[in-house]
Design a protein around this nucleic acid. Sequence first.
DNA 1: TACGTTACTTCTAAAAAGCAAGCATTATGG
DNA 2: CCATAATGCTTGCTTTTTAGAAGTAACGTA
Lengths: 129, 129
Amino acid sequence: MNYDPYGCPIRYWLSIFGDKWSLLIVRDIMFKERQNYGQFQSAGEGISTSVLASRLNHLEKYGIISKSHDEDHGKRYIYALTDKGKELAGIIINIIDWSEKFDEKTLVEENFISALRKNPEALMKKMMS
Amino acid sequence: MNYDPYGCPIRYWLSIFGDKWSLLIVRDIMFKERQNYGQFQSAGEGISTSVLASRLNHLEKYGIISKSHDEDHGKRYIYALTDKGKELAGIIINIIDWSEKFDEKTLVEENFISALRKNPEALMKKMMS
DNA sequence: TACGTTACTTCTAAAAAGCAAGCATTATGG
DNA sequence: CCATAATGCTTGCTTTTTAGAAGTAACGTA
């Protein structure tokens, strides 16, 4: 049980998601249909605006999210998941599964958990669409 | 597509693994058979000793790793994955899969990747044993 | 052309991480 | 039974990162 230590996939993951906020932004887009700056900020998680700006840049730079003008709304931008970002679904499903299993305080909708454990592939496809 | 915002599983994950080092320690135990302080420290990743000590405490506190005396070796301790820690295998497999797919610089043994994509369940069981 | 909305940037203080050094505990060799 | 070495930390200081409040810039609307 081993793999090449150079170009480690775990380190790559950590270079993008090794902080308290980046994965929450992905979660917000994926599950909560948040898509612009104000929505991320007022999500109640308490991210400071300076860190939010830097995380959005970071995620865009690494190709996880895209940024485009919202035609109908002044200076507003729309942040969305790229394909690379959507394909985080598999990881996120596993995180949800694991947390639900080991943390008493974690609450996940029963529908979601049973879908996850019965047919994860189908759930993933739904999440990525 | 939604789940209850309270007791969020992603936040639980981040409370344990939302930093640059914790997941690397798990990787070291899982794949590199490292199991004591000196081995983690000299792994070449550059973790500072004070942070290493705090991360090991943290992981132990959250039930990811266990700490026991090495009977044969002076003051040495053995750090090992608990069941909860071993069950991170599913998440880690997905991270490896994703990184390999999207990062050119990431290198994973071909055997591992093909095992992962052909029969992830079997690989997981192997990893957890 | 003033005003609200949105998306940031800037500044300062607090917290965390990095780094070098030192200390404590447990063998081990003389 | 005392000096030495190996291991696992702890401590104190410096540097980097984050938090929080405030301010600015771009855009559309009245």
